[in-house]
Design a protein around this nucleic acid. Structure first.
Lengths: 342, 342
DNA sequence: CTGAAAGCGCTTACAG
DNA sequence: CTGAAAGCGCTTACAG
């Protein structure tokens, strides 16, 4: 497997490497027609494939961006990544996707590895716990955009959901259906991750605006594997909640699993709304009402903002963040409590 | 953002570039302790990060492999990819994952792009329609392994499920539950993709071994968006099927959606088994019985076989393929037809 | 124990 | 219209 290089092509076509290079880069401005043909022919005969690595070294651009998702297990991450890819492909950029597994150490490793690989920019779903690194990239004027989360004090523009609005939509819907005992379960907030905080805020504000009390027993922020226990506790209350807002897809899954285990019928015995529109929502029994994120638009925006920074070589952010409106996907997991409608 | 290079470090530490390079590659055999310290210091002070692109160019190895999945929408693809990544990470290899979208043209584009990026080897879930390219890689002794599918006449070793066995397990289970009117729906077979064929074969053989007739009306191979229509037809038969084997996760999804739409209760009105253990199977109502592929093991094997080829520089395959046993995940989507048990 | 030199496969002013 | 030459940032025999 001896590789054929540009020099081989040049010799075969009886021109210089420079000319071959011009040809490849479509700078035919002054190139003779016969020369062009000879090169084309040589490339074909030798089965020549340019070595992008060599080009990148010289050009100091790899036409590749890195994407580091906090946790690939979230549906959201997969869908947004796909949209980022599409946006980048359109600009002839490639995409390398890495999964930080919610682990700041892994996130750090990937940031360093991708930068060592000379990717031209980074889209990060930040874990939030690598402030020094984030700051360093800013200082170096390295193109970065955040997705899903923002990091306090780090002025990198972030593509995010209107999170408070998402909770609010869910609560409004619950209340309109006559639900009053509404709980919320979000992923753990140890890391102070912004969407979790905002969704919690939205929940509280919405309850207040409906003049409903905020009960500590109805609020849980826990790891996925503790959701069951949290539900256990809630359901053992004298006044257990009758409706639950699941803060993300993983929490929703746990809630549904819990319901199954304890033979609670969704809607009938327990109303549920999930933030994140899971793929099975529409054909679940009953179909699950969710608050959908415009994942495609968000990914597209993230890709475009990053490409813009890369091209313009300006990494300053004129906008702190790009917020997107959620959509309520009304299905059948919320019970209508006739008598209590406001 | 002027990047600091090895030359800068060398100057700062007052040694030559060679020595810095030795240091980075941990060839300290004969390196003076003070030199080592000075270099370490210089690297730290300058915040030096090696440029992997430059190294790759010289070493002719990127320590990166490419993975091209036929269709990332299959759960199977995602899980196997994750396992491949893990296996590669362990050997300090990176992974670039691309999605061919079941489109041979895209597959071709990605194969060429990844090879241009000098990845050291390729794991492909082949679409099957790029025979020339596959053959070319073989001829060039380029390291490749296939996953999920094999390609007739292309002797690249492939990591696959024991597909016939998968269908057989499902049919045996149906029959043991007293089901006799068993249909199968697989994805379209226009492309002659091996697992689909094998699953179909397994279905037929299993029916025969149970002395059940093979009815053409009970066999459909269609695109996901035609599954509904196919079901429509089947269910309109004088003797509609009472059990359905869904050939993969996407088909299963369509079947469940169809059941929902037509108010058919799974198990009660229609028994179902799906090949591929979908994430929601365990908490669906009713929980869905599936035939699971050992995705983790398969991905690990694919990664290891490829790394082996890369390291040993031998790309000949001592084994045509690596077959894995499926597992029946018994849940509750198959009705026990008491009276009819054999 | 360390350094000078060549080279990996390209690109890009610049000269002609 | 085309070529010679330098250089991207590393690594690696080889010499000393």
């Amino acid at each position: 497997m001896k590789t054929v290089t540009m020099a081989d092509v040049a010799k075969h076509a009886q021109v210089s490497k420079s000319t071959v290079s011009q040809y490849l880069n479509k700078r035919y401005d002054y190139m003779g027609e016969k020369t062009k043909l000879r090169i084309e022919q040589a490339i074909y005969e030798l089965g020549y494939q340019p070595n992008i690595i060599a080009r990148s070294l010289k050009q100091k651009s790899t036409k590749t961006i890195g994407v580091i998702v906090a946790n690939i297990l979230h549906n959201f991450s997969t869908e947004v990544s796909r949209a980022i890819e599409d946006a980048c492909n359109r600009a002839d950029f490639h995409t390398i996707i890495c999964n930080a597994d919610d682990d700041p150490a892994k996130e750090k490793k990937y940031i360093e590895m991708l930068r060592a690989k000379q990717v031209d920019g980074l889209i990060i779903f930040p874990t939030g716990n690598n402030r020094d690194l984030y700051q360093k990239m800013l200082d170096e004027n390295y193109p970065v955009v955040f997705v899903d989360r923002s990091v306090e004090g780090i002025p990198v523009s972030s593509v995010m959901l209107e999170n408070e609005r998402a909770s609010e939509m869910a609560i409004d819907y619950f209340v309109n259906k006559g639900q009053k005992r509404i709980a919320i379960i979000t992923a753990s907030m140890i890391e102070d991750v912004s969407p979790r905080l905002e969704r919690m805020e939205g929940y509280k504000k919405a309850l207040q605006s409906h003049k409903l009390a905020i009960l500590d027993e109805y609020i849980k922020s826990v790891e996925p594997d503790q959701v069951e226990e949290a539900l256990q506790e809630m359901m053992a209350l004298d006044q257990p909640p009758e409706a639950i807002l699941a803060g993300n897809d993983l929490v929703l899954k746990e809630v549904l699993q819990f319901a199954k285990l304890h033979h609670l019928n969704i809607a009938e015995d327990l109303s549920v709304i999930g933030i994140d529109d899971v793929p099975y929502a529409s054909f679940y029994t009953p179909p699950i009402t969710t608050v959908a994120q415009p994942t495609f638009k968000m990914g597209k925006m993230a890709g475009e903002v990053l490409l813009d920074k890369i091209n313009k070589k300006k990494t300053t952010d004129e906008r702190p963040d790009y917020r997107f409106e959620p959509t309520l996907m009304v299905r059948e997991s919320v019970k209508e409590k006739g008598g209590y409608v406001l």
